[in-house]
Design a protein around this nucleic acid. Structure first.
Lengths: 258, 258
DNA sequence: CTTCTTAATAGTCACTCTGACTATAAAGGG
DNA sequence: CCCTTTATAGTCAGAGTGACTATTAAGAAG
């Protein structure tokens, strides 16, 4: 918008586009990063798996559409969906990304705690969690979107409090560390991780009283809740890669991202 | 795209959108951050200033459209435009952001060195640089886009080699420091800045031989070229704000950004 | 041709943060 | 009762940082 076309303004002089949202919905489950995919029921890419998503309604923003689609695909209530972390990633506009028509897609990343079995109602009968390292080729350019989403999530863990979005309301520092280790694909030193998390103001706050986690072996851990900070000071930097590691390949035209 | 609508797939069942790119083109001039704006020649917002931009052509990606518009607005040759830094920021999709029709806009940020007088041909007769702190209310939601762009640029200076995009091919460390100080709105210690820049591998590389900058007073400075690194290790962190400073207000649905 | 001013560059020092460790505490399993 | 497991506490050397001081090399002022 903004600038009229050279020949003057006429909306109908421009080809119409379809606009959609695509969602990269992540969770950490059994120390693996998982992503929610849906199986396509028709051409193109019938039978292939894809990121959930859908068209914008006529008077709907992309953020609203993303939350609506997320609620539909996961079966979570609007209240739950309204609370979780949803972040616009990037918009994909390649003219041939959908063979049927011109479609631009606004991609979002969403982070969920490990829910019992989130898939439910909605229009995606065949939605399921996949290990993010074991997804075959996806429909459209969704491999690219997924790789970009993983890059972004990993980068944001460094300087934001995003990691708590993968955890339930109350969690131990061990669980939080597991999130970092899973997303980054590295092992972290436990005492050092603890020191950094506790020294970052507003990252986590201890749950009052003497509550401690039961169930596992080993000494019970103290429980924490997400703090009120959104940025992380000082940042929790990812250790430099020492050798070749299973790093998802980036793809976008623009390089580094964060 | 991706998931068909509940009632099955029919492209024409969905309202068509116009898709545009909007450009926040920055340069540093006389120790002030400047942004390129165009004056609108027709309604809506006739006479108001706006970010340059325009519609996507039928078979054009948003990246291509952004480069094309940039070349048109600045009058720079395609070769020059192809080389400079252009980065997708975020997509704005509010249903009422253009009163005429439904328009979603993919926003880009571009960084230029201080060129003699870049505005030239193209369809924007009345394009000019504005001090980024002195822009009145812009057309559409461009105030929001501009504020988001400034936030993003400032954040990226910390951990990327982006700052050299504001400098000519050869520059002194003083000029590079000026970029940081201008974008962040702070003063930096010169010896410390120098130490950090030179210790970051691949950020800058000295120009061979004994060339030194002439013209100003004071001891001549050594010249450097942008290095081949794209990320900055270790990062050059912005000093924490000590008090109220002229910080551009953010606006996006999502908070912190980097 | 001094002397002043300006800016670049070199170097110092205390403080903080970090990574790599070691040690201790508190649970369950045999 | 010992062994394993996990959480938590603490130590220590090295890197990085902010705040300085000192020196060098140019143009400008007198």
């Amino acid at each position: 918008m903004t600038t009229p076309a050279p020949e003057g303004y006429d909306p109908h002089a421009y080809a119409p586009f379809a606009v959609t949202v695509d969602l990269a919905v992540f969770t950490v489950r059994e120390a693996r990063l998982h992503v929610l995919l849906v199986e396509r029921g028709q051409e193109p890419f019938r039978g292939r798996w894809a990121l959930p998503g859908g068209f914008l309604l006529p008077r709907e923003s992309a953020d609203d559409a993303a939350r609506r689609e997320l609620a539909e695909e996961t079966g979570l209530g609007p209240g739950t969906v309204g609370a979780l972390h949803l972040e616009q990633l990037r918009t994909y506009t390649g003219p041939d990304r959908d063979p049927r028509m011109r479609v631009v897609s606004v991609a979002y990343a969403a982070l969920l705690p490990d829910l019992p079995e989130p898939r439910g109602g909605g229009d995606a009968a065949s939605a399921r969690w996949w290990d993010a390292d074991a997804v075959g080729p996806l429909a459209f350019d969704h491999d690219t979107i997924l790789a970009d989403a993983r890059d972004r999530i990993g980068a944001k863990l460094e300087y934001s409090c995003l990691a708590t979005a993968f955890c339930p309301a109350e969690f131990t520092l061990g669980e939080l560390q597991q999130v970092y280790e899973t997303v980054w694909g590295v092992e972290l030193d436990r005492p050092n991780f603890r020191r950094k998390v506790l020294s970052a103001p507003g990252f986590v706050q201890p749950v009052g009283g003497p509550p401690r986690r039961t169930g596992g072996r080993g000494k019970p851990a103290a429980l924490y809740r997400a703090g009120d900070a959104t940025a992380l000071h000082p940042p929790l930097l990812r250790p430099p890669r020492t050798d070749a590691s299973p790093s998802s390949s980036s793809s976008a035209t623009e390089g580094h991202d964060r």
